[in-house]
């Protein structure tokens, strides 16, 4: 087995494990971590594929860099949203304590 194949398989395994984790948890932070792991798997596969020729393909490296930028900014946004949602939920819970939830929220 070549190094390239090994890394590809490892990347795919990380991707699938992370997907499994994503589907199995409901906690937002855990799900976000799972998404990041899926990203890591994808990037690993991309870097492995870049090594299929010699010298390694610079286009894929460039794509990975771009992908990382996207992933970081998306994660930042997600973290901000998740914490805000948690704070909003917390304050709502303390407001509604005792009198039940009568609000007409649109539920999925």
């Amino acid at each position: 087995m070549s190094a390239m194949q090994l890394y590809t398989i490892v990347g795919a395994a990380i991707f699938l494990l992370a997907l499994h984790g994503l589907l199995m948890t409901t906690d937002s932070i855990r799900r976000l971590i799972a998404v990041n792991l899926m990203g890591a798997g994808t990037f690993l596969i991309m870097i492995a594929l870049a090594a299929r020729i010699s010298p390694p393909d610079p286009v894929l490296h460039a794509l990975v860099v771009t992908g990382l930028v996207v992933a970081i900014s998306a994660t930042a946004l997600a973290l901000r949203l998740i914490t805000s949602a948690a704070i909003a939920q917390h304050s709502q819970d303390s407001e509604n304590k005792g009198d039940g939830d009568l609000s007409e929220d649109v539920k999925p």
Binding site: L22, S28, R31, L32, V35, A74, L77, A78, L81, I82, S84, A85, A88, Q89, D105, P108
Partner: peptide, 11 residues
């Protein structure tokens, strides 16, 4: 109220 749906949407 929309933070939670937005976070889910993002993920």
């Amino acid at each position: 109220k929309a933070y939670k749906p937005a976070a889910n949407y993002l993920i």
